[in-house]
Design a protein around this nucleic acid. Structure first.
Lengths: 342, 342
DNA sequence: CAGATTTTTGGAAACGTTTACAACGTGGCG
DNA sequence: CGCCACGTTGTAAACGTTTCCAAAAATCTG
């Protein structure tokens, strides 16, 4: 609406001075500055983003990429909303804005990212749902765009990431169950090549090994990350000749389906099959029996991510590019866990 | 990375011609055009967004505003992801991009919007979670920014909206129950002043009136739009001296909590209290008994929204500003509905 | 009070595009 | 052969900022 020229004319002052006043640059008379600031709010002046970023070569905006088409990203409750809300707030304190950049299902995630980088609408990117081999990481590493990944990848190269500690969660889940006497523990892994599956699997194997238990391939199943997938998982467990006494899940939506499938097959969750799922979630609270799970503060995760991104844009960005953070989670006991055969 | 100047130098050609070739402008030799196009993909040239939109006065980007802090926006399943995914795809066919603009919980939605409008990072806005009186609508109507609301408002003035037909859903829900013999039907309304609550309420009242049933204020409760809120609702119903035989809900998360509360009070959902909820949702599929609800295609809704926004930006934008669309939903029977006292 | 120094301001260039306009070359036509 | 029209290209201005540099004004110093 009002541009800086009009604002300057209205004040009978040069636009250079107005700009300096608005941007807290030194060397402008205090009285002039306050006059400018007042006029700006009066006329509702806000700097045009295109003009500003064209000149500055920076947008002061962080992009958070999600794949709206992928059900794997539809984390049941509003994982991304909560994380981005806190991240956004932390960024705002430092003068940065956050936008969510959705990659729609008909678009190629790598091309989408390439376009995003070239268009220059953000100063840094966060990408999520990292794959075991993730071309997006290779692309971003080659470009000059600072980026952070939520989740790791086996893609070679040095890049900053924050990842929920899936390995540790799975390992400890096994340990909890083993301590109660369970020896046959099934696990549901995502069928897609999202990296978290790798770590959850390795944690599961580490847990078995620590307990001296054998690995039964029949108990390691790959299912869709959805309610449907959980139902499939339950059906397959029910059909096993030698049924497991416990099951691990790394997705909350899957848990809902598993409960349904077990019940439909006359198997009582919790008593017949102990269950430990991944992340505590308001939706799970009303499952009966309440599933044991792991807790973490998503707002704190968002704050940490904001910090990591700001570090990338700071003076010692090179240092920050080596930042890795394994995000810990704490065990939440639940009635879904009992000794086998109880 | 590569700007248009470098691209032009690489081709030994003027940047004007390059721009015309890339933008499909007439008056450029076919051979030149193809040479330019090839070089552009080779060098990975993508027009810088700031430069382009500064010159064009348009960004070719639509902003979809959500309030990440508000639990009312955390619609249980991924309502917004599915809608925006389809909307994004439709927009892309017409050369438009879509970004999700989150307003974080510590920020004021009205100020956020004002800033957004002035910064000029989008050509049009979609706002969601409309309130009964919504200052955002007043603000946008005053500005030159084209906008569409998902949900109506009582705010005066002419503006385009698309709204799920909450009134009709509530009215038909009552009718379904009445046909089975129910006469005491409770309803859970959102405690916040989101507009959908008004319409759901009026539909409920219309349904009662059509059946010649009295309105009992004890049966109209306001609760939080969350699992917790649903639990509260159930607890309050259980405590009523003259318990209703049926309940209506306009939120899926609430439904999960209601089931839990009823069970904890020795009341069987479906047989003791019939239940009809709002929107079909993968999470609800595993509730037992399966709740009756209403179905609609969210991708189609997204496509319709894309159409409405593009209309606003088209030649007859004035016409399009009068566009209203009440989005219909179809009833999905479920085991949660039975004759009273069965 | 003149000169030196500092503070404050104005002017103009630059960021990367797009586009109106002018210029150029080519071919057709009289 | 000269002129005009047309197709193609180059040039430069403009979009709204920020910032460098110079100019002006204010303050200090001897």
């Amino acid at each position: 609406m009002t541009d800086i020229r009009r604002l300057a004319e209205h004040l009978n002052i040069s636009i250079g001075t107005v700009s300096r006043a608005l941007n807290n640059r030194p060397g402008v008379h205090p009285e002039t500055r306050s006059r400018v600031l007042q006029a700006a709010t009066e006329l509702g002046y806000v700097a045009n983003a295109s003009g500003r970023s064209l000149r500055r070569g920076a947008t002061n905006t962080i992009g958070f990429v999600i794949e709206t088409g992928s059900p794997a990203n539809q984390a049941g409750d509003n994982f991304f909303y909560i994380v981005t809300d806190a991240m956004h707030e932390s960024l705002a304190e430092r003068g940065y804005d956050l936008v969510i950049l959705p990659c729609h299902s008909a678009d190629d995630p790598v091309e989408y990212l390439a376009r995003l980088v070239a268009r220059g609408i953000v100063d840094a990117l966060v990408i999520t749902a990292t794959r075991v081999q993730d071309q997006r990481i290779a692309l971003l590493a080659k470009s000059a765009m600072p980026f952070l990944t939520l989740g790791r990848s086996e893609t070679p190269g040095e890049y900053p990431w924050i990842d929920l500690d899936f390995h540790d969660v799975a390992r400890r889940s096994v340990a909890e169950l083993v301590a109660l006497g369970h020896r046959r523990i099934a696990v549901a892994l995502p069928e897609k090549d999202v990296n978290l599956g790798q770590h959850y699997r390795s944690g599961y194997l580490a847990g078995l090994q620590a307990a001296g238990l054998p690995v039964d391939p029949d108990l390691i199943l790959r299912v869709a990350t959805s309610e449907e997938g959980g139902y499939d998982f339950g059906r397959q467990l029910a059909a096993l000749p030698h049924r497991p006494t416990a099951a691990l899940l790394c997705s909350e939506a899957t848990t809902v389906g598993l409960y349904g499938a077990l019940r439909n097959n006359g198997i009582a969750p919790g008593t017949d099959v102990s269950i430990i799922t991944f992340r505590e979630n308001p939706q799970l609270r009303f499952l009966d029996p309440a599933p044991a799970c792991f807790r973490t503060s998503l707002p704190e995760l968002g704050q940490e991510m904001a910090r990591a991104v700001l570090d990338l844009l700071g003076n010692n960005g090179d240092q920050a590019r080596r930042n890795h953070k394994l995000w810990p989670m704490t065990f939440v006991p639940g009635a879904s866990v009992a000794p086998p055969g109880s």
